[in-house]
Simulated assay, not measured.
Amino acid sequence: MQATSTLDRPEAPPAPNSRTFARAFADVRQAWAHRELWGHLGWQDIKQRYRRSVIGPLWITISMGTTALALGLLYSQLFNEDTSTFLPYVTAGFVIWAFILGCVTEGTDVFIANEGLIKHLPAPITVHVLRLVWRQVLFFAHNMIVYVIVVAIFFTSLDHPYKLGSDPVIKPGLSWNILLVFPGFALLAINAVWIALLFGIISTRFRDIPPVVNSFINLVFFMTPIVWHAGVLHRVTGDQGGGNWRLLIAELNPVYHYIEVVRAPMIGHPIMWHHWAIVGAFTIIGWTLALVALRNWRARVSYWV
Rank of each mutant, 00 (worst) to 15 (best):
I190G: 01
T224K: 05
G42E: 00
H275C: 07
P14D: 09
I96L: 14
M1I: 07
D45Y: 03
Y50C: 12
F111H: 04
F182R: 00
Q48A: 14
I170G: 09
I149P: 08
L138R: 09
H142C: 13
H160F: 05
R246K: 13
V181S: 02
Q48T: 12
P210S: 06
I201P: 04
L188H: 01
L289H: 04
A31Y: 06
Q240T: 05
P16R: 06
W134H: 11
E36D: 15
P14L: 13
I278G: 00
A141V: 04
D159V: 08
V146Y: 05
P265H: 06
N114F: 03
D239V: 06
A70T: 07
P270S: 05
I259H: 07
D82F: 09
F185H: 01
T126F: 09
P183S: 07
V150L: 08
T283E: 04
E81P: 05
L164E: 00
W276L: 06
G184L: 06
I217M: 15
V133F: 00
L197Q: 04
L130W: 14
G165C: 12
I178H: 02
L121G: 02
L164Q: 07
K119F: 00
F206W: 14
L248A: 15
H229S: 11
A26W: 01
W297A: 07
R51Y: 04
